[in-house]
């Protein structure tokens, strides 16, 4: 997981859009499976993606296998599936997935050397704690002063399969000299195994088989009780993100949520992946997100 170049900025030559996002190469490309590993309930997938740029933390890729994509249960999958990488550098991408349906089942049974179709990175990634703080305060009209600590403290919250972009963002923040508080929630100990390498993270499980017995949002509430001068980043299932959105909205804490939605294309073509906005209408998760300001959103749908 730690293929990182040092010295000169390896990202400087990558084409970027007007809003700073890393642009995807036009089309889809072949990538080969380098390794697969099962950790508890999840499968970790490492791909060699020589022709793709590293993603901004929070961006995502669309994945489909080159062979046997389709002809599974009910002749599915048919469309590619969206995943945010847990790391991307040096021409490699790392993904984490759980076998829960025909698409993830096929991806979970991939073997070393098999080929995938990959497109991306797509969408808008996370923004710096300072940016999130200032943008939220300029909306609310409150004093943007942060005190004398140099910046707001980032709290990163992940629920289950929402872990990958949170890991990637935490690593990027560390590289930039910012240590984030990590709060990780899982269904049970088998799902929580993947978090074993994050020694400083606080853990919660729904069934109490590891860490705090309860929801990760309870850990978040406790952290915010202790220190309101925080910026929250969260990724996880819809109901968890909705719980985070309610909590930070009540407490007026600047927050970015990395959203998930069923999507057909990943690049704004199908208009299928929308989430409702606070001021009415919808935003497309794939091009307007997947990372969005919590303050812009209406209640997050369950799926």
């Amino acid at each position: 997981m730690s293929v990182h170049q040092s010295g000169a900025d390896p990202h400087s030559a990558i084409p970027r859009g007007e809003d700073g996002r890393t642009l995807a190469p036009f089309g889809r490309r072949r990538a080969l499976v380098v390794s697969t590993r099962t950790v508890g309930s999840y499968v970790l997938l490492e791909l060699a993606d020589r022709d793709g740029p590293p993603a901004d933390p929070g961006q995502f890729h669309m994945l489909a296998t080159q062979q046997h994509w389709g002809a599974g249960e009910d002749e599915r999958p048919f469309l590619p599936r969206a995943f945010s990488p847990m790391g991307s550098s040096g021409g490699h991408l790392w993904f984490m997935l759980e076998d829960v349906g025909p698409g993830t089942h096929r991806l979970a049974t991939l073997k070393k050397g098999e080929a995938l179709w990959v497109s991306g990175p797509f969408g808008r990634g996370f923004h710096s704690p300072e940016t999130v703080h200032v943008e939220a305060r300029s909306v609310s009209g409150d004093d943007p002063a942060l005190g004398d600590r140099g910046g707001p403290r980032p709290i990163l919250v992940a629920g289950g399969i929402g872990l990958p972009p949170i890991i990637d963002w935490s690593r990027r923040l560390t590289e930039q000299g910012t240590e984030a508080t990590m709060l990780l929630g899982f269904r049970d100990a088998a799902h929580a195994q993947v978090a074993a390498s994050f020694a400083t993270a606080q853990l919660a499980t729904d069934d109490g088989s590891a860490g705090h017995h309860g929801y990760v949002t309870e850990l978040l509430a406790a952290e915010l009780d202790r220190d309101q001068h925080a910026v929250v980043y969260a990724c996880g299932p819809g109901p968890m993100l909705e719980a985070v959105r309610r909590l930070v909205s009540e407490r007026d804490v600047p927050t970015e949520l990395a959203l998930e939605a069923g999507m057909a294309c990943g690049y704004g073509a199908c208009f299928g992946c929308v989430v409702p906005l606070k001021d009415g209408g919808y935003a497309r998760v794939c091009v307007d997100g997947p990372v969005m300001a919590a303050g812009d959103l209406a209640p997050v749908p369950a799926h």
Partner: peptide, 23 residues
């Protein structure tokens, strides 16, 4: 037009059902 509320997509055997609502 804002389009239809989600969910807007459903995958079938080699097909896709959409209910986008012409946003």
């Amino acid at each position: 037009r804002p389009g239809n509320p989600p969910p807007r997509l459903w995958e079938t055997a080699t097909g896709l059902v959409n209910s986008i609502g012409l946003p």
